[in-house]
C-alpha cells in the first residue's frame, strides 16, 4: 500500500470525523453539563441541513445558507430548551429518552410532509465539487473544506473553553453544577446559551456534512446513534474527548469501508462495544481531563 493511498484514507477519515465533531460537540457539552440524554440532537442537525438545502436550491449564496442553517436551529434550540428541556433535567433518564425520541418523531414527520420522503440535496458551489491538486494526488475540494472548517471550529471552541470567562464557567458547571450555583453563577442562562450554541453547530454540521451524510427524513434517527457514540466514547462533557472520539470513529469507519466493506458496518459498533466495556466512562471523562 502506497503512502499516498494511506494519506487519502486518512484525509477521508478526518473529514468525516470533522463533520461528526461539529455536530456532536454541542451534544457532549449538553450531556455533560445538564446530564440530559438528548436523542433529539440529530433533529437540529437535520433541520440545519434541510434549511441549507432549501436555500441553496433556491439560488442563495452557499455561505449565507450555512449561516442561516446555523442560526435557525440555534434559535429553535433555545426555545426548546426553555419550554421542553428545562422541566426534563430533574426527571429520570427514561423520561428524557422518551421525550427526546418524541421530538425526533415529530421532526421527522414535519420534514417528510414539507420536503418529501426522498433524499434532499444541498447544492455546493462548483469549486467545492471539483478535485484539487494537493501535491501527491488530487483530492476532492469538498473534503478539504470540511477539514478546514472543522479545524477552525475546533480551535475556536478550544480557545473559548480553555481561555475565556465563559469557558471557565462552563468547565466549572460541568465539574460541579451545585457548587457553580452556590458561588452565584447563573447556571440557567449558561445552560440556555450553551444549548443554543450546540444546536447552531449541529445545524452547521448537518448542512456542511450533507455531502457525506445525505439528508433524508430518517436522518435524525439514523445518525443520532453515531453522535451519541461520539459523546459517550469521548466521555460526557469532555471537549477533547469528543474530538478524539470523532476523529477515531471517522477513521475507523473509513478504513472499514476501504478494506473490509463486508464487515464495515459491524466494525464501528464492535469498537464501541469493546471500548465501553473496557472504559464505561469513555476515553477521557470530563472530570479528569477537560
Amino acid at each position: 500500500m502506497s503512502l499516498g493511498f494511506a494519506l487519502t484514507i486518512l484525509l477521508d477519515g478526518i473529514s468525516y470525523g470533522m463533520v461528526l465533531f461539529i455536530i456532536s460537540v454541542g451534544l457532549t457539552i449538553t450531556m455533560g453539563l445538564m446530564r440530559l440524554v438528548n436523542l433529539a440532537h440529530g433533529s437540529f442537525a437535520m433541520i440545519g441541513g434541510y434549511i441549507a438545502g432549501y436555500l441553496t436550491q433556491g439560488g442563495t449564496n452557499f455561505y449565507v445558507a450555512l449561516l442561516v442553517a446555523a442560526i435557525i436551529p440555534g434559535i429553535l434550540g433555545g426555545l426548546a430548551e426553555v419550554t421542553v428541556f428545562r422541566p426534563l433535567y430533574r426527571k429520570a433518564e427514561l423520561s428524557q429518552v422518551l421525550l427526546t425520541i418524541g421530538i425526533v418523531f415529530v421532526s421527522t414527520a414535519a420534514v417528510t410532509v414539507i420536503f418529501g420522503a426522498f433524499p434532499y440535496p444541498v447544492v455546493f458551489p462548483e469549486y467545492l465539487t471539483k478535485p484539487v491538486d494537493i501535491g501527491f494526488r488530487t483530492y476532492p475540494a469538498y473534503r478539504l473544506f470540511l477539514i478546514a472548517v472543522g479545524g477552525v471550529v475546533a480551535i475556536v471552541l478550544w480557545y473559548l473553553i480553555e481561555n475565556s470567562l465563559y469557558g471557565a464557567k462552563l468547565r466549572a458547571a460541568v465539574d460541579n453544577p451545585r457548587m457553580a450555583r452556590a458561588v452565584g453563577m447563573n447556571v440557567n442562562v449558561l445552560f440556555t446559551g450553551t444549548f443554543m450554541v450546540g444546536c447552531a453547530l449541529a445545524g452547521l454540521g448537518g448542512a456542511m456534512g450533507a455531502g457525506i451524510m445525505s439528508l433524508e427524513p430518517s436522518y435524525a434517527l439514523k445518525y443520532v446513534v453515531l453522535f451519541l457514540v461520539v459523546v459517550i466514547v469521548g466521555g460526557e462533557g469532555s471537549f477533547k474527548g469528543s474530538f478524539v472520539a470523532a476523529m477515531s470513529l471517522g477513521i475507523i469507519d473509513t478504513v472499514g469501508k476501504y478494506f473490509f466493506s463486508q464487515a464495515a458496518p459491524y466494525l464501528l459498533y464492535v469498537a464501541v462495544f469493546i471500548l465501553l466495556l473496557w472504559r464505561p466512562q469513555g476515553l477521557m471523562p470530563a472530570k479528569s481531563v477537560a
Binding site: V84, P87, L88, K91, S95, L98, L99, I101, G102, I103, V104, F105, V106, S107, T108, A109, A110, T112, V113, A117, P217
Partner: peptide
C-alpha cells in the same frame, strides 16, 4: 397521511412525559 402517525406518536410521547407520567 402515511407520515401523520409519526406526528401523533411523537406528540403523544411528549405530552405523556410532561403531563401524564
Amino acid at each position: 397521511n402515511p407520515h401523520f402517525w409519526e406526528f401523533i406518536v411523537g406528540g403523544m410521547l411528549i405530552i405523556t412525559v410532561l403531563f401524564l407520567e
